[in-house]
């Protein structure tokens, strides 16, 4: 499988006043197509910085980063905006849906920044994405009419709609209860089975065990990389949960 993300000896320094913070101190990371990678680590370990750089929201101080074979480390702001629009899908902890905007319009949003896609195709693709996350019957709903799990599904549909090479999830289950978290994980696993490459930042070990590989950060270094051997399946985990009291 080809490498979607190819990072070599990547460093990132922040200047906070006089002090220089070394957020990443030389990281090598390769993520291949079809992988579902957990990025773990305590806060301040550099995992968020890593995700921002992978997502082209931030640029490395040193090192190389090839995304889908393209060098994105030294791109201008506008060029990285275009790369984000075409190749990356983001899923955030707090969903970040536009309020008072229907689920469908929220999902359409990334395609509006792509001038090649016309209104009709945009709508069709958004509908398809919402169907893929099981919300075909909620398209006209506003975010405040949806549960947390449903809102996150809308956000996942939004990350899918531009058919990205990689989906970046930043603690996407952090605001959800256990059952809903497993439901969302089941959806991610389903997408992964269909061939989507997913990078998922989490600090919950049971969530991480749903993925194919885990990468652990500490103090700006990768300290462990493991293939997950006894992988969990979220769909089965839900069945194991005690029945909800109505």
């Amino acid at each position: 499988m080809k490498a979607i993300i190819d990072i070599k000896s990547l460093k990132k320094d922040y200047h906070v006043g006089e002090v220089t913070v070394h957020a990443l101190r030389g990281v090598d990371l390769e993520i291949r197509q079809g992988e579902f990678v957990a990025i773990m680590g305590a806060s301040g370990s550099g995992k968020s910085t890593m995700l921002n750089i992978i997502g082209c929201l931030d640029r490395p101080t040193e090192g190389t980063y090839l995304l889908d074979g393209v060098d994105v480390a030294s791109m201008s702001k506008n060029e990285s905006a275009m790369i984000r629009n075409l190749k990356i899908g983001f899923v955030f902890q707090s969903y970040n849906l536009l309020s008072r905007t229907s689920a469908l319009e929220n999902v359409e949003l990334p395609l509006m920044y792509n001038p090649i896609i016309k209104a009709r195709e945009r709508r069709e693709r958004a509908i398809a994405a919402l169907e893929a996350v099981g919300l075909a019957d909620r398209m006209g709903h506003m975010p405040n009419q949806l549960s947390g799990g449903q809102q996150q599904r809308v956000a996942i549909a939004r990350s899918l709609v531009n058919d990205p090479v990689v989906i970046l999830a930043d603690e996407a289950t952090g605001n959800l209860d256990t059952r809903t978290s497993y439901e969302i994980m089941a959806l991610f696993q389903e997408l992964n089975l269909k061939g989507k490459t997913i990078v998922f930042v989490t600090h919950e070990p049971d969530i991480a065990r749903c993925m194919t590989r885990s990468v652990v950060f500490r103090d700006g270094h990768i300290i462990r990389e493991d293939e997950i051997s006894n992988r969990l399946y979220a769909a089965e985990m839900i069945k194991a949960l005690p029945v909800e009291e109505e």
Binding site: G55, L57, K77, N78, A81, M82, R84, N85, L86, F90, F92, N96, L98, L109, P110, Y113, N114, R158, N162
Partner: peptide, 16 residues
Amino acid sequence: TREIGLRMSIGGRGVD
């Protein structure tokens, strides 16, 4: 601000 951040993360350029 968060909306702006989101729009930028999904490909909105400064000029947009």
